[in-house]
Amino acid sequence: MSVLSRGFGRARTRPADDRLPPGQYDVGNSFPVLSAGPTPHTPLARWDFGIDDEGGELRRWSWEEFQALPREAVTVDIHCVTKWSKFDTRWEGVAIDTLLRDVPTTASHVLASCDGGYTTNMPLPDLVNGRAWVVDTFEGQPLAPEHGGPARLLVPHLYFWKSAKWLRRLTLAHHDQPGFWETFGYHIYGDPWREQRYSGD
């Protein structure tokens, strides 16, 4: 039984939007920036992206090689654990399915690692079958550093902290290893529709 807030919501004009998961609000045209540390600025000449597992590196792409991969454009809603949601965001990049095409694996989980030391974890099935991408373009423009450029992970069906900025590596594993926010009390999986914000939700 929740506590009613006397008089709250009287001035509300917009109807509830069924694209909004519980506890979220529509941020409209703005795009808030959140990160735990300074924005890294890795030159493209030094940027690479790799997939590895317990045995070491499996695949690696330079920026030029990454640009030559088959690309996809997606329009998705995104949901940040700090309560804002943003509808119809347009991204371009490479599907994880494409990146994993020649990587046979029996792994169950993935740990994403980034410039600046950030990490986040998720089950491998959440990254495949057209559900996740490594994106380098937002609304037709190169992805800005404060939003995760040169390239970030995009996993729109999970809270946006899972869509790691400044992505450099995906590590395939046979166990779930908590990433950065996951060790600080945030939910291990993070489904916005089940409002899995914090551990135990």
């Binding site: 703005s30 808030p32 920036v33 959140l34 990160s35 540390g37 300074p38 700090t82 804002w84």
Partner: peptide
Amino acid sequence: LVDLGHEPTSIRIERFGESKEPS
């Protein structure tokens, strides 16, 4: 701060974003 020579890992940030409410 990074340009002045501070270690990036020694800097912790909390941002309000551009949203209409602090986030």
